[in-house]
Write a protein that binds this DNA or RNA. Structure first.
Length: 328
DNA sequence: GCTATACCTTG
DNA sequence: AAGGTATAG
């Protein structure tokens, strides 16, 4: 059976791109609750699904290393046959198209297995996902200059950056977060993908799947299915939101929100069942290119009161719309 | 504009 | 309680 890759073992082909730890810390970025799909499969090695492929990532001081599992490497169960034919139309094809369009010529297929420099396509997928064109050091400097408290704690959090996630996965994952805790959310998202997503490959007893498509989630039988999987009252939100998107907007709607202004995108998302201010802001920030969105959850509110002497909401019992605007 | 309450389930 | 949302008052 195929295994998760480990850099030091030399058993798999690894590629790399230059990337300092000050610009990206995999552990902080992948485990901080933006995405619920990455697991530390070996010391410092993070495995997850992104752009329709299974990746293992690890890093040294100035280098980001990655391994992409090919289909012959991890044939999975019946996953291979179904997976390739049915691979999520709106997720993978979209990504493929985007990168194909940017590339003049593919060179990754012809490289010798000993090559360690990154293939153009896969490097671009990582640069896009981690938004490596954004210079983190410049932002930390700017924020540190403007905020003494930020500068004081910034050293502890060097290398945290926002991911640019796929909108469908981001939205439906964050609908699961209401009144919930991270360990349970991770389990729910994993069960969601394993039950309803197209299989990609199996490694060390773990089956990896794509995130389910909108059309699968919109099916009428899905609520009961999700309740059986332990989603509670969120089961209905997931099914209804998927159905509402397809019925009233169409399959490309979520992606199209990337090109509209923040407030418009946020208000559009809030028309979906199970999506309030906080979830809408998470989806805007983490998948729709709205860097000005500031999700205010219970923790951010506590911090605003504790570390920033946030006065106007001190007596407040809960986070109201006005509080969202003020803290943001 | 703000408060109170229910909502599924489990680490 | 836990990374909220929907509803009524």
């Amino acid at each position: 059976m195929a295994k998760h890759a480990v850099l030091s073992s030399g058993a798999k082909m690894w590629r790399c791109l230059p990337c300092a730890k000050s610009e990206l810390r995999l552990d902080l970025t992948l485990a901080c609750g933006q995405s619920f799909r990455w697991r530390e499969t070996a010391d410092g090695h993070w495995t997850g699904v992104m752009g329709g492929r299974v990746w293992t990532l690890t890093q040294t001081e100035d280098t980001l290393w990655y391994h992409v599992y090919k289909n012959q490497e991890c044939p999975g169960e019946e996953g291979d046959k179904i997976g390739i034919a049915a691979v999520s139309p709106q997720v993978e094809n979209k990504t493929e198209k985007r990168f194909k369009g940017m590339l003049k010529k593919e060179e990754d297929e012809e490289e010798p297995v000993t090559a360690v420099h990154g293939s153009v396509e896969e490097t671009e997928m990582l640069r896009d996902y981690f938004q490596l064109n954004v210079k983190l050091e410049d932002l930390y400097k700017k924020w540190g200059d403007a905020d003494p408290h930020f500068r004081h704690i910034a050293d502890i959090f060097t290398g945290v950056r926002m991911l640019r996630q796929e909108p469908t996965e981001c939205l439906f994952s964050f609908i699961c977060t209401s009144n919930n805790h991270i360990s349970r959310i991770q389990g729910m998202v994993e069960r969601l993908c394993q039950a309803l997503g197209t299989p990609l490959c199996q490694l060390d007893q773990t089956a990896h799947h794509n995130f389910p498509s909108l059309s699968v989630l919109a099916d009428n039988g899905i609520e009961a299915r999700l309740r059986d999987l332990g989603f509670g009252y969120r089961a209905r939100f997931l099914q209804q939101s998927a159905k509402q998107i397809l019925d009233t907007h169409g399959p490309q709607w979520l992606d199209s929100l990337r090109t509209v202004p923040y407030v418009e995108a946020r208000d559009a998302l809030r028309t979906l069942p199970g999506v309030g201010t906080k979830v809408a802001d998470c989806v805007c920030l983490m998948s729709l290119d709205k860097s000005e969105a500031v999700p205010i959850d219970t923790h951010v509110w506590q911090i605003a009161k504790r570390d920033y002497a946030f006065a106007s909401g001190k007596g407040q019992k809960s986070i109201t719309d006005k509080l969202h605007r003020d803290i943001g």
